[in-house]
């Protein structure tokens, strides 16, 4: 599903030029549950943004589902993000003015799904994360754990093939974090491909494959349970 070859990402020019990612090679197959681990500033989020078609590599190629994203037009990338990828962020990134339901409907708006169908799909996704009864609440009226579950519902609502989670439990207490990870387990069992960033090895242990990144390089890939 993901095939990255020789990817480099640099910021700045000349003397100020810094390579945040250095010659990354990475392959993730369909149905895998991968944890990317590394200390703060090691380049995890940068890698994730490239995986999520939000950013382009400075060098190297990125093939997603057999298509070379580094060659794609911006409008096609938007479509990939909308249809094939679901993002989950550490800070939830919900729109504070909108109710849970409306937040979950956002990707459907850009997918051109309207009316009753949109409402139904959003409700189904909220059901999946156990928050159907909170659909009319604003994010400020929900706990952190609930907000993150709304964000997961939003990531799932267009039935993407790949879930990208950047420290999804980073802002949560233990119980809420476990709750989120339980959801991921379920999604993994349903066949979703998940790439999750964390700097907590206990969290990483929930995945079935672990990749360590340090100073912009992939250090090692260790198996933590058999990959599918």
């Amino acid at each position: 599903m993901i095939h990255i070859q020789g990817v480099t990402k640099s910021y700045g020019q000349g003397n100020l030029k810094t390579d945040v990612l250095k010659d990354i090679h990475l392959t993730v197959s369909e149905g895998e549950y991968v944890a990317i681990m590394g200390p703060s500033g090691s380049g995890k989020s940068t890698l994730m943004n490239i995986l999520g078609a939000l950013d382009r590599p400075t060098q190297g190629t990125y093939q997603f589902q057999g298509r070379d994203l580094s060659q794609m037009e911006a409008i096609e990338l938007a479509r990939v993000r909308n249809q094939s990828i679901g993002f989950i962020f550490q800070q939830f990134q919900l729109l504070s003015r909108l109710t849970a339901q409306k937040n979950v409907e956002l990707p459907l708006i850009y997918a051109g799904i309207r009316g009753l169908k949109r409402k139904e799909m959003a409700t189904t996704a909220l059901n999946r994360v156990g928050l159907a009864d909170r659909r009319d609440h604003l994010p400020s009226e929900l706990s952190g754990g609930q907000q993150q579950r709304v964000a997961i519902a939003r990531a799932l609502v267009n039935q993407p093939d790949l879930l990208l989670a950047d420290e999804p439990t980073g802002a949560l207490d233990q119980a809420s974090g476990d709750n989120v990870l339980d959801l991921f387990d379920g999604l993994h069992q349903e066949g979703k491909t998940i790439v999750m960033i964390t700097h907590d090895s206990e969290v990483a242990a929930r995945a079935n494959r672990r990749i360590d990144i340090l100073d912009g390089r992939i250090k090692e890939t260790s198996q933590a349970g058999g990959s599918v």
């Binding site: 999520g52 911006a74 938007a78 850009y110």
Partner: peptide
Amino acid sequence: IRLSLGATRSN
């Protein structure tokens, strides 16, 4: 957020 969820620039 909107861009990450699939909004295009023209959206």
